[in-house]
């Protein structure tokens, strides 16, 4: 390699390097993920819930989803089987019977937990999910490409997908009634609940309330607020009279679900240094090998 081409080599390599470095910095490229002091939440007291499923009806009605009339919800047949939220219902109530108290089944309302460090927000390839100031985790249909990575990521297995649609299938999940709360209304499910099993309020206050309840009625509740620390905390919190695993809550650690991935991701891409270093290293190796070949050929 002559001096001239050598210089060219370095110059061109430098240009290529800076092009790669010009790619987005992680801060401008992340979706909205606000963790406000005053974020809202809901405390679900499963010892109060009677499984009337009015919340299911209210939720559907508030989201313009087809539903049978409210009276039909008195039919408890459907509760014989475990159900999950999906595109027909953003929330469902499951009932669990236990041999020690057969006459007192426990009812558990299920919906998105609105995590404080949501895996779905971190995972979504186009940033279609966002954590809003009021605590809601919502989904933007105009961005979503339907890759379903959010479903892989969510530790509570919440986002559901309209597999039956060929055009504009949507990710369906509880949106914490984002448009209602914006207008100062209560979430539809909270508003309708006749037993006041659902309490809407600042997450901070809800935790205080939950603690006090546990303190006052140590026989009624186990000493665990589900969602207080799970995967770094969730906006929806649960109280129960028995172990949460018995009620099919997933057993999760306290560190945020996206933690490990984001650490790896940002380690590899710290200011794009590792890729650039690799680029430079390979360029150097290539250059040395070429020159060696050249000089060997020269000697021949």
């Amino acid at each position: 390699m002559s001096k001239q081409t050598r210089r060219n080599f370095i110059k061109t390599a430098a240009v290529a390097g800076s092009v790669i470095a010009g790619l987005p910095k992680k801060t401008d490229a992340a979706p909205k993920n606000i963790l406000s002091e005053d974020r809202m939440g809901v405390l679900v007291d499963t010892t109060v819930c009677v499984g009337c499923r009015k919340c299911e009806w209210a939720c559907k009605t508030a989201h313009n989803m087809p539903t049978t009339p409210l009276e039909s919800y008195d039919n408890r047949e459907v509760m014989k089987k475990m159900r999950r939220p999906d595109h027909t219902s953003l929330t469902v109530v499951n009932e669990y019977e236990f041999d020690d108290y057969p006459e007192f089944p426990i009812d558990v309302k299920v919906q998105c937990m609105h995590c404080d460090h949501p895996a779905c927000v971190s995972a979504c390839i186009v940033g279609a999910f966002s954590k809003e100031e009021n605590g809601s985790v919502i989904w933007d249909s105009s961005k979503c490409i339907g890759c379903r990575y959010c479903m892989v990521a969510c530790p509570f297995q919440i986002p559901s997908f309209e597999f039956h649609k060929a055009i504009q299938p949507e990710i369906k999940k509880c949106d914490f009634c984002f448009s209602r709360t914006k207008e100062g209304k209560l979430p539809a499910c909270v508003e309708i609940c006749p037993m006041e099993a659902l309490t809407y309020g600042r997450r901070k206050d809800l935790i205080d309330i939950a603690r006090r309840k546990i303190e006052l009625y140590p026989d009624r509740y186990i000493n665990h607020i589900y969602g207080e620390t799970e995967v770094g905390g969730t906006a929806w919190l649960y109280l129960a009279s028995r172990k949460f695993e018995d009620l099919q809550f997933p057993k999760l650690g306290n560190s945020p679900a996206p933690g490990v991935t984001e650490a790896i991701q940002h380690g590899v891409f710290a200011y794009f240094l590792p890729p650039i270093a690799l680029y430079a290293l390979l360029g150097g190796v290539m250059w040395i090998n070429k020159n060696r070949k050249k000089s060997e050929e020269g000697e021949e």
Binding site: T27, I145, Q265
Partner: peptide, 24 residues
């Protein structure tokens, strides 16, 4: 073909999420 909305495959080019492994 696996994307529910295959016709939006270009979205990641202009809608970035640097936290997403899938994006990378």
């Amino acid at each position: 073909m696996d994307l529910g909305r295959w016709y939006y495959i270009w979205h990641p080019l202009i809608m970035w999420n640097g936290n997403s492994v899938l994006f990378e």
